[in-house]
Nucleic acid binder design. Structure first.
Lengths: 183, 183
DNA sequence: ACCCGATGAGACATTGATGTCTCATTCGGG
DNA sequence: CCCGAATGAGACATCAATGTCTCATCGGGT
């Protein structure tokens, strides 16, 4: 009888990922519950988005942990990270675009932690001579998120096969589009 | 006395680029005109966005023309294209996210033309042996837009210096993050 | 200097979403 | 089996944005 909060959040994520402007009513229907019940669990749309933010951050942190980004060669760590992040990618891209709207408001500091972890990975790679040093960690982090988002969207839209998600992102991010002379 | 339609569009673009949810009233104020006048020129918010879409497409096509993407080595053509596209980047990223909302509605076929041009550039590069063939032109096109958007946003947010915009994007897109062994 | 068209300001009705409330129903634990 | 808590459905007030309208004003062209 009691509503499973996490399940509601997943349904909301699945819907909002596809239609960012979905109404509270649509979210409720998608979750298979009444609008009143949705309001009982999440005070309003803001609260819902905040909760989704929490969920996304949690899953991203978990992905980082699983990828063990502090271990081994940095490029392989990036590869593992992209693989682990794939499932959260749609939610991530939703939250990123959603966050652009929350102007100067209080920013969930979970993002800072995540940024720091990604950024640290790229910095480590630079220090170990694996990554180029002329691209700043900040930019590489930004590009990382951007490509994840683009990839998620391209897959959702059928322009890229889901099985190629990881490969396309990792190869472009690490190796770029130019044909390598050496290989 | 008469309102300059293009100037209004530019003001609207400048505002909506920063705050995508800006109200018609805010847009009017930003353009220095009355809300009624804004409505006289653009029937509604949709019409305004459509007009911005037209503007963006026009400017992107112009950028393509200036970049002469059909001439010379493909990688240098990409470099020129990124340079020419820089000014339109914020508007582009606004339109891209805005377009995600227009679900199945009629899609402006200008986008298809642009996609085709970018895609053709990457394909040409592949055929001429300049670009890797294991990344599909469709994905490279998607990534191109994604990186342009990420770059524009990073600059607007101060995480990347404006003067580095072109370099960061082109270098990552063409060369990737991995340090090249050969150089 | 005059006149006509365009503009700005504001009033107004409408619409869509939100948030609150009530009440009947239902599910589950004791 | 029964009671209480949670739910679903819907009514309702509210709010913000939109779109329309009017009217006074302004400005350029003749």
């Amino acid at each position: 009888m009691s509503v499973d909060r996490t399940q509601v959040l997943r349904a909301a994520a699945a819907l909002l990922t596809r239609k960012a402007t979905a109404t509270m009513d649509e979210v409720a229907r998608a979750a298979g519950i009444g609008r009143a019940t949705l309001h009982r669990h999440f005070a309003g749309r803001d609260a819902l988005v905040r909760a989704l933010e929490e969920l996304g951050i949690q899953e991203l942190e978990a992905a980082h942990d699983r990828a063990r980004t502090a271990e081994g060669p940095a490029d392989e760590a990036v590869r593992r990270l992209v693989a682990e992040v794939e499932d959260v990618a749609p939610l991530l891209s939703f939250l990123v675009t959603e966050n652009q709207l929350f102007e100067g408001d209080q920013q969930n500091d979970g993002w800072e932690r995540l940024d720091a972890r990604v950024s640290a990975l790229f910095r480590r790679g630079q220090e170990e001579g694996v990554f180029r040093i002329d691209l700043t960690p900040a930019w590489l982090t930004e590009a990382f998120y951007g490509l994840i988002g683009s990839g998620a969207w391209a897959v959702q839209d059928g322009r890229v096969a889901a099985k190629d998600f990881q490969y396309m992102i990792v190869e472009l991010l690490l190796g770029g589009a130019r044909r390598s002379v050496e290989k």
